[in-house]
Design a binder for these strands. Structure first.
Lengths: 106, 106
DNA sequence: GTAATAGTTGGCGTATTGGCCAATTACCAA
DNA sequence: TTGGTAATTGGCCAATACGCCAACTATTAC
């Protein structure tokens, strides 16, 4: 395992980690239909606006989304939409398993 | 957002979370070439054998891998290989490029 | 100017994760 | 049985992650 390979796997894991949260995933799925302001995403996930904002900043830093300011609103959108096509495979992992993922401490 | 939708997004996030660690991702990529014993995976990631074993248990619980005992060794293999096709898209997020081939759907 | 709305940032407490060590289990061979 | 190797499990501690509140910035309207 070269040092460069190690570095690559760390960067990849970082991107995946940025998706690995229920609220963040929910927002990414909503953004599949087009850009949304923070206020809409906040209503969607139901957490504090500051919490939502931090989730979005994290995903922006990871390269998953980008933003656009317009008046009072900040609109977020997917930067690389293919990430959502992965969900079919994730569902395949869930559908074939004996233990439901809700029992997994991860 | 219905309760069922919330539950689904939590389960999906759980699977993704199980991939979201450099050592785990490294092992998943190694398993793309076929099954490996824990001892080989331990050499690959370079962590304590107990740490590696816990990572594997976690991925097994999430449905990502399955194992097979043979004598002294436990061999792990991918349970749903499509998860690795996602890596092209992850790299696209990292490289700031448009959309990789993985994103073209038939 | 003030007020109102949208969003970000800092701080802090709690919960989760990840790592190693030590102990234990499982299997095989002499 | 004894010993050796492979792997898992429990415990403990340090480092992260998450959530809310409060404070602050930015923009618009009056």
């Amino acid at each position: 395992m070269t040092l460069e390979k190690k570095h690559n796997v760390q960067r990849r894991a970082g991107v995946i980690k940025a998706m690995a949260h229920p609220s963040r995933l929910m927002m990414l799925e909503a953004l599949a239909d087009g850009e949304r302001c923070v206020c809409d995403l906040q209503k969607l996930v139901g957490a504090d606006i500051s919490t939502v904002s931090k989730h979005l900043s994290l995903m922006k830093a990871a390269g998953l989304v980008e933003d656009r300011k317009q008046g009072l609103w900040v609109h977020y959108r997917l930067r690389v939409p293919c990430i959502l096509q992965f969900m079919d495979c994730v569902d395949a992992v869930l559908n074939e398993q004996k233990q439901p993922a809700c029992c997994v401490r991860a």
